[in-house]
Amino acid sequence: MNPRVFILAIATFVVGTVELIIGGTLDLIAQDLQVTISSAGQLITIFSLAFSISAPLLLHLTRRVERKPLYLYTLAVFFLSNVLAAISPSYSVLMVARILSAASSSLLVVLSITIAAGIVDPAYRGRAIGIIFMGISGSLVLGVPVGLALGHAFGWRAPFWLIAALSIISMLFLIYFLPKVKTPEPVPIRKQFAILKNGKIISALLVSLFMLTGHLTLYAYFTPYLKTTMGIEANTLSLIYFVFGLAAVAGGGVGGWFSDKWGAQKAILWIVPLFALVMGVLPFFTQSLPVFLVIMVIWSALSWAISPAQQNYLIYSSPAAPDIPLGLNTSALHLGIAFGSIAGGMVVEQSSVIYTPWVGALFVVISFGFAIFSITRPVNAGAAATNQSVSNQTA
């Protein structure tokens, strides 16, 4: 395995951390900028929406630019966007900073995946992409506890300064260690999205979208939920998020083992409904912190246990060109984060944060419906031929 892949994974971890890092400090941001908590939560929403939309567009617009300079220039924009977020005097300026950060992040993540696949031997390509996805998932999981600890210790702006500093360090490593990468032949957007004519794949992508929508309906507002239902204080919050992060990382490993041993389809059909069930019963255990933590650990582990099974299932469903649905799945995940933040904000505004677990569980039930539909569809031979045509252009 080329060690430069791990440098790219670290850079991707830094980039991915910015998405949810404010999740634990929404109340601090709302108080400082004089907005509601649901308005502060939309800073997550706008990031995820901008991310999912920007990735294919920016990749198309920069298709003829050499990969290494493009990566470094985009990382510089990412650095500046986080500096702007750290010094933003108002909610509107912070919103602009989040959009710039999301756009640059989206391009950096896609570039990391394609560069990692291009600098290793074909036999190691799958593992290289897997390492990049570990950086992405790890950043989403650990972003909140890191932001929470720094935010409550030094103010909500501190996490953005940390990300800016880490992006400079990443840039220095990449300048010296990232080799020149051949610019691939561009594939038209319409051909990239032709795969969505395959009902089996589009319903599989909707599994990811609604699963993350349900998860973020609660997780984006988990801090106010804990404070409202259990009266949790800042120091205990940091511990809870740390435990949540460890459980999520462990869940990814367990999900991978389950997927390898029993098959991706069976793993999905078990994990998704169990996830809905756990979210649905979570509110009944807020009277006891130890019991609540046990249920929360299961919820957290299941939230990332689905990831390896879902990726394996998409590869199975599109064997000729698996990179395209995997890339679209990343966009679906971020759309789910955005929609979940919106849904959670609506619940908080219209009723109370205490209902977010039940609303989230309903979205996961919808995800399960799409999982059943997708798994019962046959692999489309015609779509495979289309995928092969696209794959030939990217080779």
Rank of each mutant, 00 (worst) to 15 (best):
P3L: 07
R4N: 14
F6H: 04
L8S: 00
I10D: 00
V14N: 01
E19T: 14
L20V: 12
I21C: 11
L28V: 13
I29M: 10
I29F: 06
Q31E: 10
V35I: 15
S38A: 07
A40F: 07
T45A: 13
F51E: 07
I53F: 11
P56R: 02
L58V: 02
L58I: 05
T62E: 07
T62D: 03
R67A: 03
R67F: 06
Y71H: 13
L72N: 11
T74K: 05
V77E: 02
F78D: 01
L80T: 07
L80P: 06
S90L: 04
S90P: 14
S90E: 02
S92W: 13
L94A: 01
M95Y: 08
V96Q: 04
A97L: 01
L100H: 04
L107P: 00
V110I: 11
S112N: 02
T114E: 00
A117S: 11
D121Y: 08
P122R: 12
F133P: 03
F133M: 13
L140I: 15
V141F: 02
G143F: 12
V144W: 06
P145N: 14
P145A: 10
L148S: 06
H152C: 00
F154W: 12
W161R: 03
I168H: 10
I169K: 03
F173P: 00
I175H: 02
F177D: 07
L178S: 02
P188Q: 10
I189L: 10
Q192V: 11
A194Y: 03
I195S: 05
I195W: 04
K197D: 13
K197G: 14
L206A: 05
L209M: 10
L209W: 06
T217E: 08
T217D: 05
F222Y: 13
T228G: 05
T229L: 09
T236G: 04
I240A: 03
Y241M: 15
F244Y: 15
G245T: 14
A248F: 09
G253T: 08
G253Q: 08
G253M: 10
V254Q: 11
K261C: 01
K266T: 12
L269P: 08
I271M: 07
L277T: 12
F284I: 14
S288P: 12
P290R: 08
P290H: 10
P290L: 09
L293I: 15
V294H: 05
I295T: 05
I295P: 00
V297K: 12
S300H: 02
A301F: 11
S303C: 12
A305K: 00
A309N: 04
Q310G: 03
Q310T: 14
N312D: 14
A320N: 05
I324R: 00
I324N: 00
P325D: 04
L335W: 04
I337F: 07
I342H: 03
I342D: 05
M346W: 08
M346Y: 09
V348M: 09
W358E: 06
V359S: 10
A361I: 11
L362N: 04
F363L: 06
I366Y: 03
S367D: 01
G369F: 05
F370P: 01
A371P: 14
I372K: 13
I375W: 10
V379A: 02
V379L: 09
A381I: 15
A381R: 15
A381D: 10
T386Q: 12
Q388F: 06
Q388D: 03
V390D: 00
S391L: 12
A395H: 14
